[in-house]
Design a protein around this nucleic acid. Structure first.
Lengths: 224, 224
DNA sequence: ACATCAGGTTGACACTGTCATCCTGACGGC
DNA sequence: GCCGTCAGGATGACAGTGTCAACCTGATGT
């Protein structure tokens, strides 16, 4: 214990909490993995003994969750800002999806901890709620049809799967242009929701008919 | 160490490897989480001392990966069997996607370990390769257009995201009918790939036009 | 001056992955 | 029948982990 932290004065207790969070966040970002987040390393970095962490966090898991939730507020404002750049609700939905992916890739450790572990449901609920808002606007505008809750779930799953694989499988031979891949996945999900929500399940469509209609539809769209 | 395992005779060395794998798999399934897989628990269950595990596995991570890879062979045959139930390639693609989701939900621990951790890329490669095959058939049949590799990635991402969220967020308020949710997500991805692959990026489509065309397309499809 | 209590520290416990070292029993050669 | 050899393990130990009960300490209100 080389440099010991000066003791907080009474009433300034929560001050240490912030220092611990900052130390843990730095450790997480520098190492790139949550395995490096040991209580001893965090305490040493905060200039405090190990058990002092328990004065502000119930256990290691609570600390880890608190650290990762720290960046989560930015997600909502990111998605809002991105959606605001398009007045059309359906395009705004796509913008929000791309913003979601960018956010996840900007905070890979936090995203993995909160979304790929057992119960970090509060963060997941925030994601879903935000999605439902954008989807509801699209339903009201007529771009999508059906239950916004379920539509949002499927759309969310698609973009989550994209960033989830990118984060968890860095050794995979991903395409060179990741931005393009993300955009294409978001587009697939959006167009898919628009089309699929118009086709009742158990509809006896056949692939040749579908192919012909899709070709006709695409041919009728304006080209740049 | 109550019941000690009878020692294997020379030449029967790999026999213990299977017993360790079986013990580890049982531990994984009974507990439902990989945290319960400690080397001591595995060794005790196999009737062997702890360091003996190192005779057959480099370290704990290698054991965990080997255990989870044990069920992975079934995925390929599951998807093949499901795809074979439809002669149409595009419907077969959907069947394969649903089979993928069912497999993942049947082996949640193994799926999480192999797909939501840092480098288990061999399993991911197997998934992707299998997807590319189904997608290639759809491209040749005209249902999808574009690069099968990228199309497969986006489709895979969608279904992976779906099961990934279901596995990692069990506390989330999911819809009652999970099968329907999975089918809808797969349908969204499939229809989305079909439509999106026909619309070049940066196409200046507008939502009202798109909505009108989609409604017309859906109205022209046969009803049951 | 004194009791009080927030804000820590000390020391320990059980448990983990991992390793160097040693033992043991079956086999082949003579 | 005997012995060396080597695969197949067992022993004991080490450093590191999360966690907790017990203790200390210094500022503050009175």
């Amino acid at each position: 214990m080389t440099t010991r932290r000066v003791r907080a004065r009474p009433g300034e207790g929560p001050l240490l909490r912030e220092e611990i969070l900052a130390a843990a966040e730095a450790l997480l970002i520098e190492s790139g993995t949550e395995d490096a987040l040991t209580l001893r390393a965090v305490a040493r970095r905060a200039g405090v003994t190990t058990p002092s962490v328990y004065l502000h966090f119930a256990d290691k898991e609570a600390l880890l969750e608190a650290v990762c939730l720290r960046v989560w507020d930015q997600l909502d404002s990111d998605m809002n800002a991105a959606a605001a750049r398009a007045r059309d609700p359906f395009r705004a939905l796509g913008m929000a999806g791309i913003a979601y992916a960018r956010f996840a890739l900007s905070h890979p450790v936090q995203y993995r901890v909160l979304m790929m572990r057992s119960p970090a449901t509060t963060a997941a609920l925030a994601c879903h709620r935000r999605m439902v808002e954008s989807v509801t606007a699209c339903v009201e505008a007529g771009a999508l049809r059906g239950d916004p809750e379920k539509l949002a779930l499927s759309l969310w799953a698609a973009v989550h799967g994209c960033v989830s694989l990118l984060i968890a499988q860095p050794g995979f031979p991903w395409p060179d242009d990741l931005d393009a891949f993300i955009e294409e996945t978001v587009a697939m999900a959006g167009f898919g929701a628009a089309l699929s929500s118009r086709i009742p399940r158990r509809t006896p469509w056949t692939t040749p008919v579908l192919t012909e209609r899709l070709d006709a539809l695409a041919a009728g769209l304006p080209t740049r």
